[in-house]
Amino acid sequence: MTTDLDQNPRSLLVSERSSFRDLKNRISSQVEQLHLNYKVSLLLPEYSFDRSVPRTRIDEDNCVSLTPKGHLTLSLDKDSFEVLGVEGKPSRFNHRVKKRFVVSVDLTDSCMAPGGRGYLRLLAGLKSRLRLKMDFLLSHHPGGGASLQTLLSRHDWSEHRPEVSRHTLTHLSCPALLTSDLLSCDPHSFLEWLGAAHAHISCGNTSSSFLSSLVCPEPKTALSRALSVSVCGLLLPQDIHRLLQQIRVYLEESHLESWACLTVHGFVDSPVSWGANEHGVLRGGENFYSLLMFHDDVYYLHQATGAHDTCPP
């Protein structure tokens, strides 16, 4: 019994070090593969600033996603799946009883062309049998709004801007060996420290504190100030690419030993993460990556997924 109580669902953390100069670096394709990004947080040291959602929960409701490559994923409960009558497979997040099913459709396939066999079958299932109604969050490339107009004109819609928040952190203790050639602290304690910084949790405890014994990984230094910026909304991989380029320019211009840390959180209730792989919540629904960049183009990438998700690329 004791061993059972000590066990937890699987967690996976992939930690990678590479350089932007390395011709074989895969950062672009990795950024590209997490489509449904919810939040981007940036931490910059020694920098300060001078100047109703669809309530869909993937473990309770039906949830649909469509990626730019034309991959439609429907995560459905058992009843809806049976009514829809389209081929699918049981979710990896089922426990003993198969209560949730995933239908994956490649819309670029020839039989899914308007008027095609698969197209008519799916449409009939969605429109006359299942009568599924959903709210969608859509995002488009700059200038790509025109092509959406015809679609939007047939539905109720409203426009939302990403929400930006900034905090200047003062007297932040920080792991001292944040340099490109040697990252001494292990990935988990680094991510813990980063999480504490973004959540405004103080690391200034001692091991005997009653409330919390959270401390910054040793050896540490103190930063007089740091900037924490976050953007929330449906953010495209292209937006993140642009941001990455700007941070690299900033790092090249700034002094030595500078770094920046970019964290991208995927939607907790997204039916897919890392390409078209199935994603679920179970307890935390974590799917995020964190990119620690240095002025000499070396970077550390930490990719995390929750239980039952497949390994990140």
Binding site: S52, E192, G195, E286
Partner: peptide, 20 residues
Amino acid sequence: LQVSPYLLSLTGNSRELKLD
């Protein structure tokens, strides 16, 4: 409300998203 092996993931929970 949320459980995770990463403190970082508690800072970015999309279930807290509020559209204006």
